[in-house]
Design a protein around this nucleic acid. Structure first.
Lengths: 105, 105
DNA sequence: TTACCTTATCGTATATTTACGATGAACGAT
DNA sequence: ATCGTTCATCGTAAATATACGATAAGGTAA
């Protein structure tokens, strides 16, 4: 009975964990690279560049969209995805802050 | 049949995803902060500071150890964990490289 | 030895993630 | 109106993650 365990996690810790979760699959990392290289592109192009089924890629895009790392713009029957630079910067800042806080030079 | 899907993910992408997975839980982020604040400490101390059972904390430590972010040193019946600064730096570098590659300033 | 302390592991339950084929919804073109 | 294209969603299966109590394994100390 040293200290109580009523302590919870902070919103920043939770958000950081959430962003990390989104980055925790090679396909999603690759998707971000593709979107940056192409500036923006439609789903079919991404599917062609990944060894995964269209439904699976759609799920990964949904996860990236959930945390706000990408955005989709409807273009007729197609959807053009691009990186949300603002969220990207926020993620990098939060990670940088964490690394600094845990003693990384 | 635009392009073949034989493409696989790179080792760096896989490692980055793996590190991100390890950071994808608030408890593990908190553990890293605790270890840095205390420089190093034994499991019981970490358990007292987290709202989780000892077995659960042990699992989180195992995951952190798996990717090399922490190391444990046996000290009698206790085990003293500390951050592996080398792996930490490697993780930060890899993440920095990714953010740069995907257009983050 | 026995007793106790510390931590890992086991067993287990539940939830989440990942993957795919099939289907549906929305649009443009014919 | 119908067809083909594009993408999301549904349904589902398998794997992984998370959490805990119980137990084991290892050491210290009496």
């Amino acid at each position: 009975m040293t200290t109580s365990k009523t302590e919870e996690f902070t919103q920043e810790e939770i958000w950081l964990a959430d962003v990390s979760k989104t980055l925790s699959h090679p396909a999603r990392i690759r998707i971000l690279k593709i979107l940056n290289e192409m500036n923006s592109c439609m789903v079919g192009t991404i599917v062609d560049k990944l060894p995964l089924a269209q439904a699976t890629v759609s799920q990964h895009l949904k996860e990236l969209k959930r945390v706000g790392l990408i955005e989709g713009e409807i273009d007729g029957p197609k959807i053009c995805y691009c990186i949300n630079k603002q969220t990207l910067q926020k993620a990098k800042s939060a990670l940088d802050k964490l690394f600094t806080k845990i003693g990384c030079c």
